[in-house]
Each structure stands twice: as C-alpha cells, then as structure tokens.
Design a protein around this nucleic acid. Sequence first.
DNA 1: CTGTTAGCGCTTTCAG
DNA 2: CTGAAAGCGCTAACAG
Lengths: 336, 336
Amino acid sequence: MDKVNIKGLAKELNLAISTVSRALRDSYEISPETKHRVVTLAKKLNYQPNPYATSLRNQKSRTIGVVIPEIANNFFSLAIKGIQEVAQQKGYHVLIYLTHEDYKKEVSIASHLAYGRVDGILVSISSETNDIAHLEELNNNKIPIVFFDRISEKINTTKVTTDDYKSGYSGTEHLIQKGCKKISFLSISEHLSIGVKRMQGYIDALKDNNIPVEERLILKASNDNEENYKNISKLLKSPGRPDGIFASVEKLAISTYHVCAALGLSIPGDVKVLGFSNLETASLLNPSLTTITQPAFEIGKEAATILFEGLSKKIVHPGNKHIIVHSELIERASTR
Amino acid sequence: MDKVNIKGLAKELNLAISTVSRALRDSYEISPETKHRVVTLAKKLNYQPNPYATSLRNQKSRTIGVVIPEIANNFFSLAIKGIQEVAQQKGYHVLIYLTHEDYKKEVSIASHLAYGRVDGILVSISSETNDIAHLEELNNNKIPIVFFDRISEKINTTKVTTDDYKSGYSGTEHLIQKGCKKISFLSISEHLSIGVKRMQGYIDALKDNNIPVEERLILKASNDNEENYKNISKLLKSPGRPDGIFASVEKLAISTYHVCAALGLSIPGDVKVLGFSNLETASLLNPSLTTITQPAFEIGKEAATILFEGLSKKIVHPGNKHIIVHSELIERASTR
DNA sequence: CTGTTAGCGCTTTCAG
DNA sequence: CTGAAAGCGCTAACAG
C-alpha cells in the first residue's frame, strides 16, 4: 500500500489540489457534494496529511516538549501521565527529554528545542541549574514555557507547583504536635525553589513554636545517593540524634527509611519520619511513615492545560501566574 | 532575535543557498574557506536547520515513537530511560504515547503513527490487545517496529524480552526448594506472551518436580486492582491456602504483599512470595520478598539500539530475531 | 464554488 | 568549486 497524498486524491477525483485541501479542512467555499466525494475517498484510502509538510507550512507542529530531570521516579512519571492525557485530548504530540540533573544537557536540549521543533515546552529544571539563560532564550524565541514543580524564580513565565511553603510549615508542625523536639530537615539544592520554600516553611514553623533552628540538623543532600545515605546514617548515630525527620523529597524519605531499618531504629517509635512522597510509593514503605503527597498527576495536567490554552490563543507568553496545586498530609495510623 | 534560516545565511555571505547547504553538511565539493565562512556565521547566528523542512525533504524525521500501556510504573519508566539514552546519543527524538491498556486507543495511536510522523516505533502492547492488524499495517507501511516486553507472537518483527519461560521455571523451582508444596500462580492476560510463557515455566517446573498443577491455584488477574486484591485475599483465606505465591507481574506482587499484611500473614513465614519486580520497588517491599528483577533499562536500550541499527542501514524490517535480556532472581535474606 | 500559483526551508540534481 | 532550479506535501492568496 503506497502512501497517498493530497495530489493523489486530487488526480483520482479530477480536482485541483487546493480544492481537495479545502474540502478536507471543511472549508465553507466547497460544495457539499465535492466535500463528500473527497472525504469518502480520503477515508477509503486512509489518507493522513503528512505531518511535516503541515508543520512546515503552518509553522507549528502540534507537538510539545517535556524536559525533566529524570523519569524513573514516581513524581515525574505521573506528571507525564497527566501531560500526556491532556495532550492526547487536544491532539498534541509529546516529546520527552531527560536531563539527568545535568545542567549542560539541559542547555543543549533547550537550544535544540529553540528552533521550531515544538510549539511549547513544559520544564522541570535540573537541580544543578542556576543560570537560566538557555530557558530565557526560548522565551525570547517566542516559544512558550510553563514550569512545573522544579521552577526557577528568575524567569517570567507561568509556574505550577505544590504549596511548598505551606506544606513545609504544616509538615513541621505535624511533627511538633507529635512531640518531636529535635527535628531534622533533609534539604535539596538551594537553587530549587521547591527546596528553598519547603525549608523556609520548616524554619518558620520551628520559630513560631519557639524551637531553635539548629544548623547541624539541616542536611544538604547531594546528587549522590550513597553519600546521602551515609550522612543520614551519621546524623542518626550522633549523640543529639533527632527525634523527627522531615525529608523534603521522596528519594530522601526512602533513604531515611532504609537507614532506620539498618540501624534498627523503629519508625515512629524512635524517630518520627515525614516525607514528601507519592502515595503509591508511600504505601510500600513502612506504613507508619507520614507523607505529604504531591499531586503529580494534577500538576502535569494543570501545566499542560495552561500551555495549550496559551497556544490556542496564540499567546506567546503564557503569563507569569503561579498556580498552586495542593498537596495533602497523610498519616497512616494503622500498623498493618 | 529573529529565526535565521539558510536563506538568511546565504544572503549575508553572498552565496547561493545550495552552497550554504552543502557547506553545512560538510560536502566535499565546497572549498575549505567557504566552509569555514559558512560554519562561522552559522555558529555566530546560532543557526539550526528547520526540523520540519528537513524531515519533509528527506522523508525521515529522526524521531521514534514509543507506545506503551502505562508510564506510572517502574518497568516502563526505566525502559523509557533506556530508550531515551540511546536516542539522545544517536540524535533521535522520542515521542511518547500511552494506551492505558486500551485496545482502541492503541489502534488509534498506531494509525496516526503510520503516516510518516516517526521513522520507527517501539511498542509494548496493551493487555487487551489480541488482534494486531493495526500493527501489521505499520509494518506494511514500511515503518519498522520493535516490540519489547509485551510482545505479540503473531507478527514478524524483532522482539526484546526477558527470559520469561526460564524465569517462570526457575522462580517456581526456587519456591519448591524452599519447601513449598502448594504454589499459586498469579497470571495476567493470556494474550500476552509474557504471561503465557511465565506460566508455562511454572507449570513445567511443577510437573518436573511431580507436583500436581491445580486449577484453583492459578489466578487470572484482571485490569481492576481492587478485584485482584479481593481474589488474592480469598485465595489466602481458603482452606487449602497456598504456601507459596508466584506473582507474574509487579503489580500483583505488591497486591499480594498488601493482602498478606492485612491478613496478618508473615512473609516468608506463612507464605513464601516471589514476584517479578523491579529492584527499586522491591527494596521498598518487605525485604523477605524474593524477586525476579526485570532489566527494564537494558531492555529499553536494547530495543532502541536494534531499531536505530535498522534505521541507519535503511532496513525496513528489523528482522524477526527474538533478543532475550536476562533477568535475575534476587533473594534478600536479611531482615534488616 | 474551483483552479492556478507561490512559498514554508531544505536538499539535490543538473549546469556551469 | 558554486549557482539555478525543482520539488518534498501542504496551505492560502489571488483569480476566475
């Protein structure tokens, strides 16, 4: 079966190419009968317009790019699921790019994307990323960006995140209410607003409850899981061992869980642990682990929706609103 | 900053468009100096060829499509990571499509993909899929397909899977060696060779060890998680309760884990559980759960590599080899 | 209502 | 070594 194009249809029907084209896009200037003839044959021959010819001609590709640090991760795979759902519904295609938390890779991907391959971009920046010139270039090249989760404060576009500050605050308060006196905070990159805000919530909650903020209880996590494991381990073996741990990110909650198991510390008996996490993952962990679940799927959907709205209105810059999708603190009491 | 195209470069340099084009592709018929002039300016102006013009002209898009049932799943997200890695290295772009295990969606996606949007496809079929005419159509349209993990036996292309039969066999033997007398098998769709083969391994292992195969111990899982949970629960509450469970898929291993917890059954004390699973997930589960870890990342890489090899050799049908990436049985003895 | 034509940006004959 | 011109498949302005 050879690929059929608009020219083939035209010849078969003894019509001009343009007539066929118009009939297919249901133009008002084509007679009903011609339309019908065209559509019928098109269907019969299973005609599909060549996507690249269309993209070239229209200067738009009905394709978006999604740039994320990693994918083997519940948060991002759920977010993609959300994005994909909206995209499919709107007839858009989704290109995936992974930065592996590598700033250089992020720059290279961004620059490839800057020249017409995609109509818009959804990005969650890498933890290494500080300078965001490469993303600003996209903005200048008039390709709309929406940030989600891992946002940068420095750029003027729409952002979709969870209520990071608030959940940092309420998570800490939760631990305080449970009787914790020495609460440790496992933080991530200070470039990431997600990290900064959650930590600010933690600090403010401590202050508001007249608990001193101790430097030694704030652990800066690295990209290296092994190292994190060691540091958490050291912390939990130290004399003034914390009685509560707030993991600002799922990966760190999991490490904490493993360290506790290895050290024979019971959760929540010896240490209360609270972590940002995904519900599915959390259900696999020690059920006594309280989690702040991030609505990854909703964040993905929301970000995609905003991007598509902008695209359909041909608005170049989707604006600089900051949409907040609420997370939920879930305490699983049962020890089943 | 306006987008610069080849025409702009040509004008700026007082050269013909074709000369610039050739210089950029490093053609032997262009003088070194001209080449240098062109390349320098191109770099300076950050010139990138329009991807759609190139695709249209060359009738290839340097893009592949990945069609999978779901993404919020360790196996598939790891596979994508592998695919993405190879693609990035070969300069290919990756479009993602999710079928949500829905046959109709799979058909619709396949037919969209049949007309030049992608140079090749990697697919893991949905559990509903039985008739594969839609995939054969792709094959007829000369777009190469490589199946991975969820393959169909009916179609004549390259397939990449784990050693399903062997691991079904050795997993069952493992349970037998641990002293299990009544081993239950939690199966999935019989359309999926992954399900059929694993089960065949289970059956043969029982037979070879003179253990009768009991119908009631073979549970056919559905797409509905709740239902699976209930059925596993019923099985474990039944009089002739199995002393070993072999979950043919991660999802079912997780459900089993939860059911055991709910019923107060200890693993591996009361029931020995063995499941196909991903290492990361397994490490979150009860550490006494023995797993057969599927090399998702490697499968993704392997499948992509084969596809790209075919593409670079302009071979339409990548062949019909069946590549097997070996899984590993991992028993975590420690109860840390 | 339908046809002719130009052109999206690029590659590639074919001619010098 | 370089240039002119055709054409990938499609849309849209312009003409009838």
